[in-house]
Design a binder for these strands. Sequence first.
DNA 1: GTACAGGCAGTAT
DNA 2: ATACTGCCTGTA
Length: 295
Amino acid sequence: MFLWEKYEKSWYGIYGEYVLKLTDYRAHTLVKKNENGDASENDEIKFSSFPLYPYWEKQVFRLDDDIDEIFSSFSNDVLVPELIRNYSGLRLMRQQPHQCMVSFTCASNTNISMIRRMLRKLCERFGNEMIVDDKRFFTFPSAERLNRASNDELRLCGLGYRTKAVKAVAEAIVNDSPNITSLLRLPYEDAKNELLKIHGIGDKVADCILLFSLDKLEAFPIDIWMARTLYLNYRWLFNNSNKKFDNNRKLSSEKITAHEYRILSRYARDYFGKYGGYAQQYLYYNARQRAGKKW
DNA sequence: GTACAGGCAGTAT
DNA sequence: ATACTGCCTGTA
């Protein structure tokens, strides 16, 4: 999700060895309809990819989820259903596990533009060049390639002290420990414990990997933005039970302690339930929107 | 120059 | 168990 770019009406995204392409003709069609009074052949969103990956949108945009059941599971909440109505185009994306693991390992303690920069450099240096529509893309490097890279080479991608962590993640994937297929099968808690064994993967990064690539929809990643949202809109959830911890939070840019993460995470998962990750996605997007973030 | 950004591991208490 | 601290790097 970090490696998507827009040109004209099309979005291009790096998905492992693939360049995915989504073209939105809908606005264009409105004009055409007005001019001709006729439906255009392009009256839709079109999906393609290089190389061909038929129906990738089903996998990547999770069209196989029972979205009605998921959305209705939040019907007792005040805020989330409203956000679902407001942000109707928002989707929870499913990434390839190895790309997701590397991406979120790079994501710790930095901002999105920095993450994008790091990942683009990793792709340029270690991925394969691909020309699509006369534009140059680089696929996402394999774990084998990253594992072969020297620490100095990785550092040149701007990883800083994350270098060691990226190496550890690449090595874990190459060694097949943990095995990705078994992570997909394991319940949330067990899969998370496996991920936490890898150097550089903590609570937050693990929850992102679980939600965005391992189909654990109850995973509820909490970064500083989610923490702010929880304190702002859901303080009542943990108001009485954790007085000491609740009161002195200043809502600002304080870092989340490990202890705090566990508490917030437990309340959020108890409250939002087995599809909580979907709620998280809407709450997160909303928090960023309200803060005027441009991604 | 300093503060800050979507955490983490290592160490001290 | 929980608290404290240093850490790469680019931007404001």
